[in-house]
């Protein structure tokens, strides 16, 4: 068991190296730092001096991977690759365009992100499972059909409209909660209710439809027939037998995103003005702040891999076949 976990952790290293190489190639090889400088400075101000200054300010004035001018290990370390890419491994992200330290910023913004993402995740899971169980219980009836139609309709609506519609109705028309903003501590609740509700709502369509499929697939299995042959009531069959088996794919599918909750939600945070990592990412993309994007890519990968690891672990918890092997 321990060696299994260790092996999974070791397997993460080459993947992170791969991620690192991809981001390095994207940010420094596809376009040279000179190109980026020209783009950032705009057509009017492009002079060789301005470019050199721009590069020097950001430490992009070094060679890419091999510094022939330096001595000793400096030939490798005094390069863009080492300073900008390799140093991500020690969570040294450098500074954003506004000169602020990215790592500090990330730490500060993690809280608001989680405050929104965790309720959405938990409530969403509960709502989707309940909804799906209901449809599975009334399978092949008009109620089930209506549920599926509703799901398909709900998943055909862009998240953008959920947010815009929610803001319009709840904040603008009914004045129930502020339209956007954020506050520290418990005061944050009034800002978070609406985005959280919208987050749950927008996920119901695809989520509960997917779970319904899982439930129905389980219900076609032989052991369900056995359970019915024992004289168990349909609810006992559903809750004791089907749910327990279907929870394996549901939980493991959910566990993988848990670490990614740190990343926040791009759209909600930016629409509702929540100072989390999601809005940070969007601002970085819109402001073409490459250092921040690079840092977020790396953190995202680390969290995703952590999610994979958690998934493997959760299998060993919920599935006796894996646990006892």
């Amino acid at each position: 068991m321990l060696s299994y976990i260790l092996r999974r952790i070791l397997y993460a290293i080459p993947i992170l190296v791969g991620v690192n190489l991809i981001t390095f190639a994207l940010f420094f090889v596809v376009n040279t730092p000179d190109d980026m400088a020209r783009m950032q400075l705009g057509a009017k101000r492009v002079t060789p001096e301005a470019i050199a200054k721009w590069k020097a300010e950001r430490g992009y004035d070094r060679p890419l991977v091999w510094n022939a001018a330096a001595a000793g290990t400096g030939r490798l370390t005094q390069t863009i690759f080492f300073e900008k890419s390799a140093r991500l491994f020690v969570f040294d992200f450098g500074a954003a365009e506004d000169r602020r330290d990215i790592a500090t910023e990330i730490r500060a913004r993690m809280g608001p992100s989680l405050a929104l993402a965790i309720p959405v995740f938990l409530v969403g899971l509960a709502v989707n499972i309940t909804f799906a169980l209901g449809m599975a219980f009334f399978r092949a009836s008009a109620l089930d059909f209506a549920g599926v139609v509703l799901c398909v309709a709900m998943m055909s609506i862009s998240t953008l409209f959920y947010i815009i519609g929610g803001q319009y109705l709840v904040s603008k028309l009914w004045h129930l909660v502020p339209i956007s903003g954020y506050d520290a501590g418990l005061d944050a609740a009034k800002f978070l209710v609406l985005p959280a509700a919208i987050g749950v709502l927008s996920g119901i369509g695809s989520g509960s439809r997917w779970y319904r499929t899982l439930f129905l697939e389980e219900m076609g299995k032989d052991y369900v027939r056995t359970a019915r042959a024992k004289g168990l009531a349909e609810t006992a069959v559903l809750f004791r037998h089907v749910l327990k088996n279907a929870m394996i794919p549901i939980l493991t599918g959910a566990v993988v995103v848990i670490p990614l909750l740190f990343m926040g939600s791009l759209l909600s945070e930016s629409f509702f003005g929540i100072p989390g990592l999601g809005s940070y990412t969007i601002e970085a993309i819109q402001g073409q702040d490459f250092a921040v994007v690079r840092a977020m890519v790396f953190i995202g990968s680390v969290l995703y891999i952590a999610g994979l690891l958690l998934t493997d672990l959760s299998y060993t918890l919920v599935d006796p076949r894996v646990r006892l092997e």
């Binding site: 052991y223 037998h241 394996i248």
Partner: peptide
């Protein structure tokens, strides 16, 4: 009646038992 007065066993014992109970 099922299971109490009339019970049934099936062909495939490996799939007829619930794997997680």
């Amino acid at each position: 009646v099922r299971g109490r007065r009339i019970a049934m066993i099936f062909q495939e014992p490996s799939t007829s038992l619930n794997p997680v109970l």
